[in-house]
Design a protein around this nucleic acid. Sequence first.
DNA 1: ATGAAAGCGCTAACAG
DNA 2: CTGTTAGCGCTTTCAT
Lengths: 339, 339
Amino acid sequence: MTKLIDVAKAAGVSIATVSRVLNNPETVNADTQQRVQQAIKSLNFRPSRVAQRLRSKGGNSKIIGLVLPDIQNPFYVDVIRGIEEVMYEHGYAAIMCNFAQDEKRERLYLDILKSESIDGLIVAPVHGRDQKVAGLVLSGLPIVCIDRGLTGVEADVVLVDNQQGAYDAVSHLIKLGHRRIAYISGLPQIPTSRARLAGYEMAFRENELVVDEELIKYGDSKHESGMKLTEELLALPTPPTALFTGNNLITLGALETIHRQGLKIPEEIALVGFDDMYWSISLNPPLTAVKQPGFEMGKRAAELLFQRIKDPSRPTAKVVFDAKLQVRSSCGATTIKTS
Amino acid sequence: MTKLIDVAKAAGVSIATVSRVLNNPETVNADTQQRVQQAIKSLNFRPSRVAQRLRSKGGNSKIIGLVLPDIQNPFYVDVIRGIEEVMYEHGYAAIMCNFAQDEKRERLYLDILKSESIDGLIVAPVHGRDQKVAGLVLSGLPIVCIDRGLTGVEADVVLVDNQQGAYDAVSHLIKLGHRRIAYISGLPQIPTSRARLAGYEMAFRENELVVDEELIKYGDSKHESGMKLTEELLALPTPPTALFTGNNLITLGALETIHRQGLKIPEEIALVGFDDMYWSISLNPPLTAVKQPGFEMGKRAAELLFQRIKDPSRPTAKVVFDAKLQVRSSCGATTIKTS
DNA sequence: ATGAAAGCGCTAACAG
DNA sequence: CTGTTAGCGCTTTCAT
């Protein structure tokens, strides 16, 4: 590996000067700069980011951590792409950690990231009272939360108005005449699960309808739980006429169960999902779903993080995006908006 | 941040001893070890991975690089999950880089990873003659290629028999009576594109059929190109009666175009895709597709990488998985195997 | 079995 | 404007 000293020799200067042209070119004579740049180029030199990181703590190690609950969920994939987009422009890299909705795993990754001396962290905490993340925030590490906020500590956060999104979805179902509407939720300790439940209940309340608790099921937000809980729901003495699924993966699981049982959507059971996918239109039937702008959310989160790294004392921001209902045909005949 | 010296003081030993209990516990007295462990625990000490990395080059920095073409493709997501699974067990972290099929991006990321002093790299090179990756292999960095091999240099590789997979898919179509079968490929410089084309041609040859070149289209393996090329194909004077799509994303794009045009699958156009998705059964219609075991491939790749890190001189391995055709109903009525 | 000390490659005072 | 030098936190001889 070629290093500072090699470049220094080649250019006939000291390593300090080389370091300077790397970090503060303006403090170096134009022609010295030239010679050094030459040497750098011809030796194909790249400074060791590890050594840089060890030396200068905080803010210029050009690496951040990314801790997300489930990489199988296309929503998070969009978030990742958004984050990556702006990081790429800044020459940053990300250490990506997928904790698969498992708190133990989240903690391990957080420990690793900490000892990697990252510049900042974008995280969707396992739950609102995530002590590990809270501790990191308090320790001064620049952090922005995505998708899920943190209670009790100040931190930047970008998310969607989950309650309103769920409210719109369920209202849509109610308007279509449905009364027995089931909700398949993710784990209740996840803030988004609760906000979506609140939206569901609000829609009932506003229509002076009463929620039937047996129609609310909790799972772990994965495909399998979507399948299983849909089975349970369909096996009820009086099964629901409509299903509101709490996320992407649950929706796909519900669809699978419904298809396996040969039920017709929306005639025998209607379906709205939280989280849209760009191929929702190709599902059977084209899925009506609440769309979160994952890509934009990711970009915004990364921008917030960079701002906070630059100015750690700036006031925290809370960015709330709208969740929009995409009406297709899984709830009944309506105008089919092409996604 | 608590560091070696803090622990050393707390335990009344030197930093060297603390380092020893961390790395070679057996070379330390049992009771000294006890005291040090105590101190570590009570101070909640974690060694700085950055310092470790800087100091001891190669093989124990516990971080690897992951460079993949497209995180939106569920196949690579499965690969990532597989890799992550075994890395998690070993306490490793990954720097994940998604180059979005863009060679410039791939190069930047490779440079970054190099200067991060990673222990090893798992990569799906942009193309077979990727000089950057080849150079890294030659430089001695432990590397395993996934999904796509490298020509001209020896490197571990794990992939699928793409030719056979494509052959099976197209043969299936031919058996069903199709003759005008289009193939929507990814970029021709990607090895998998070529192997799948070879399978397509082989199926024609074996059935004494002749390939119509106008039915072969090349795109960039993304959703949009799937949509666009399908439009072109359908606009032909004599459009194809069947479509073989070169990957996941192309398939989804093709489906979207077909649905927008209101065509019936498989009556008006049949469809087989390369790459299965776990929700293929919920598509309209349930998709017949060639399945790659992404998760297993990822696990295998990570295992190979660990072995190579441990023993850099071991002979290179080439692991070939089978690609299996999952018959559902997008090519015509057949027994529907539940995925 | 343990400690002292020399770096890993770089940045940031501090001198000149 | 440029060079010298002291570390960043750790591992690893080399002594003891």
